[in-house]
């Protein structure tokens, strides 16, 4: 089962390599990992999607927590989190197929962001399951290239990860 873990880390050199190294050497799976700055430029947020049983995910959390650069960690349940992924997908679509691809994109609320005589590039941001569905539906049109960001997520409602910087 896929689980989403939100991790606040110090925004400094080497942190990403420490996190990915940790997953590799402890034999944990990473389905996706997205990282970017937060409202505080000294802090980055990593959203990690990993699969494993309860014991494995608990270990992932503990090992991540143990890292000196980790500030706060929280597991986000699918039902209580807004999860999004961005995809750019370039499909083969000449004059005859353009209309069909544009129709599919429209159903998803996706945008066509680039066009050539033989291809269309579709951009879409949605829940990861919906992104998978979009890919499935576009597969018959010969997918040339795909770029996905990996999932980012925030808790629904007023709740946050609850990190309060400690005063030095």
């Amino acid at each position: 089962m896929k689980r989403t873990i939100s991790v606040l880390v110090e925004n400094k050199a080497g942190v990403l390599s420490r996190v990915s190294g940790l997953f590799a050497r402890r034999g944990f799976n990473i389905n996706s990992l997205a990282v970017g700055e937060t409202e505080d430029p000294a802090v980055s947020r990593m959203t990690i999607v990993s699969d494993g049983d309860e014991h494995t995910i608990e270990q992932v959390e503990k090992q991540l927590n143990k890292m000196i650069d980790t500030l706060k960690i929280k597991r986000l349940e699918d039902s209580s989190a807004t999860r999004r992924e961005l995809i750019l997908i370039k499909v083969g679509a000449g004059t005859h197929q353009r209309g069909e691809v544009i129709d599919i994109a429209r159903v998803f609320g996706a945008k066509v962001v680039d066009i050539s005589t033989t291809t269309l590039t579709v951009e879409h941001s949605d829940r990861p399951e919906r992104i998978d569905l979009l890919v499935d539906l576009l597969t018959p049109y010969k997918i040339k290239e795909v770029a996905r960001t990996g999932t980012v997520a925030l808790e629904k409602g007023a709740g946050t990860i609850g990190y309060k910087p400690k005063k030095d």
Binding site: E10, M67, I68, D69, T70, P165, K166, D168
Partner: peptide, 9 residues
């Protein structure tokens, strides 16, 4: 030389 280790407690 003050420590800055916000993630280490």
């Amino acid at each position: 030389d003050a420590q800055h280790l916000p993630g280490y407690n």
